[in-house]
Design a binder for these strands. Structure first.
Lengths: 327, 327
DNA sequence: CACATCGATTGTCACGTGTCAATCCGTGGA
DNA sequence: TCCACGGATTGACACGTGACAATCGATGTG
């Protein structure tokens, strides 16, 4: 394991010179000296020890990103990639940790003296407090913002179903406790739009996602021309499956729109209408806030709604006017 | 940021005493002294600095797990969780990094002097060489093992379809270059089983997973009673969708089995038959190999096949004997 | 009573780094 | 010739930790 002392002796200079040149203070030195040191570091494959640097600086260049407890599809993956790359450009190292891995998070991570923590899922208030007590910068997807986003998605789904001509609208949510707060916000968003537009709201459908659970659908579809705003594409698929088992036609009798733009929704029959979440522009705001050190600015809801795109599939094409947009 | 010196002065002893008691050498000290130091550390919320420890030991307690460039569903997520927990039990900290985040991996990570790297995706040979040159233990899902696993899955799918009575069998693979080596191994596994059992093999179907691509299915289903072994549940759904658009019945005319046991496959109509991958027992082998320091023992194929379970859905229930197992 | 013994506790060193004060050396002015 | 100047380079320190040698003190032995 080569150290800066090795580089120094290899270049015939003092270790101090090596350290300064490699840390941006090269203007104090002769050009050929700079070149010689750089070359020596290159030859020896020198990588400064994070441990040594952390020790002297009091804080490391490490940022820990907490990954929420959901399946990580292409969009979320891309967001993480972007955050990692932008942090790298700013000189920081992004490392990941699953939020599902118990309380061990703080024990395991705080010893690293990370420069900051990015939490893609809401943190508990005392978790946040403890992190900040250790001078760790925190940028999180707060519960408020998350709920605002979910509400906006619910409204967007309802608006789509209304535009397509469904006269009654319901939300469909999975029976997973962990998802409850978000599901509630979604359903509220659906209700909000319907009340504002004077469209009839039907009680929220609770969908059991266990294998085969929909084989014997109940009379949950007691309405003709019902539009269903599903929690995600999986739930949307369950609704389509249940309707099919009940002998109802999609989209003629029941319309469905999901969220996520999952692969299977684009190739099933019928193809699923869905909402695509574009997370790209958030990454910049996150990294910016982290590096500057202040909190993440609460985006206005106008800004948020721009991040969503309705993708028209066959599952909600009630009216003949429902054409597929070019994509 | 409290250091061991703070704990020492708080307990009225020397820093050396603190260090020894907190590192398992407590048998050398009086019980009440041990208690006093432990209490002081607790009171001050002391967490030893990874940097300091790394510096003096020459290597850190950090393990970096490289996450492959695929969507991370519940099974993979659970594997990562298990690895993290088992490593924590052994005193190591597991941190994650996406494999897709460019070549910056080595620059960013090697400075941490990690104890080891777990790669859930095959590494390039020179990557592995460079890691080992820095005394980093490497445990990877080698290309050979990955291909052996895929071959076994393909055989299992073909065997299921054959058992269900489909007289002709085809593999269905997505058009994604990144997946090509694995897809090829799967198709080969399907072919192997068919040749061994004397069942007719049909040319591999190449499935375009772009939205709406299957709306105008070609004449790819030129065979009655065709069994299709799909690359995953998404591809299986595409096959079902295309069959449906072509006016063919599933499972009567075409049988389909996927891989992954994804949620949507259990609630669609028809429900998808699939293969569930049980990754639990691999985590133990991985951590074991990493902590011991030798390479990951190449599991025999018999062992591997035990990790797979066929889940019977409606999409491959050609024969009346095809009953749904209790689960 | 002197001394060896042994358990309990402490002192010291090294790890690799970044920063800043200190030193070196060549040049120009008085 | 001497000194001040200033740019180029180096020395020394601190960061927090774990391991090991060294020290302390009390007890038992001759």
């Amino acid at each position: 394991m080569t150290s800066s002392a090795d580089v120094a002796s290899h270049a015939g200079v003092s270790r101090s010179t090596v350290s300064q040149i490699l840390n941006g203070h090269d203007h104090r030195f002769t050009p050929d000296m700079v070149l010689r040191v750089r070359q020596a570091a290159e030859d020896l494959g020198y990588r400064p020890s994070v441990a040594g640097r952390t020790l002297v600086r009091g804080t490391s260049d490490i940022v820990i990103t907490l990954i929420p407890d959901v399946t990580i599809g292409p969009p979320l993956r891309e967001l993480i990639d972007l955050i990692t790359q932008e942090l790298a450009t700013a000189g920081y190292t992004n490392l990941l940790r699953l939020a599902s891995t118990g309380a061990s998070f703080e024990d395991a991570v705080l010893g690293l003296r990370p420069m900051g923590v990015v939490s893609l899922a809401p943190l508990s208030p005392d978790q946040r407090t403890r992190l900040e007590a250790q001078n760790v910068r925190v940028v999180e997807q707060s519960l408020e913002v998350q709920i605002a986003i979910d509400g906006a998605i619910g409204r967007l789904q309802a608006a789509h179903l209304g535009r397509m001509g469904y006269s009654r609208i319901a939300a469909a949510m999975p029976l997973i406790p962990r998802e409850l707060p978000f599901a509630t916000a979604r359903a509220q968003g659906v209700r909000d739009w319907c009340e504002a537009e004077g469209v009839q709201v039907v009680d929220t459908l609770h969908i059991d996602m266990a294998r085969g659970a929909m084989s014997h659908p109940t009379t949950m579809f007691g309405h003709a021309q019902l539009g269903v705003a599903a929690y995600n594409d999986d739930v949307a698929m369950a609704v389509v499956g249940a309707a099919s088992k009940a002998g109802l036609r999609v989209p003629a009798d029941i319309g469905v729109i999901g969220v996520d733009n999952a692969d299977f929704g684009g190739v099933s029959s019928p193809t699923l209408s869905t909402i695509k979440l574009d997370l790209a522009l958030s990454s910049h705001a996150i990294v910016e806030a982290l590096v500057r050190g202040d909190g993440l600015p609460t985006s206005s809801l106008e800004d948020l709604s721009r991040q969503f795109t309705v993708i028209q599939g066959e599952s909600s094409a009630l009216t003949p006017s429902g054409r597929r947009p070019n994509h």
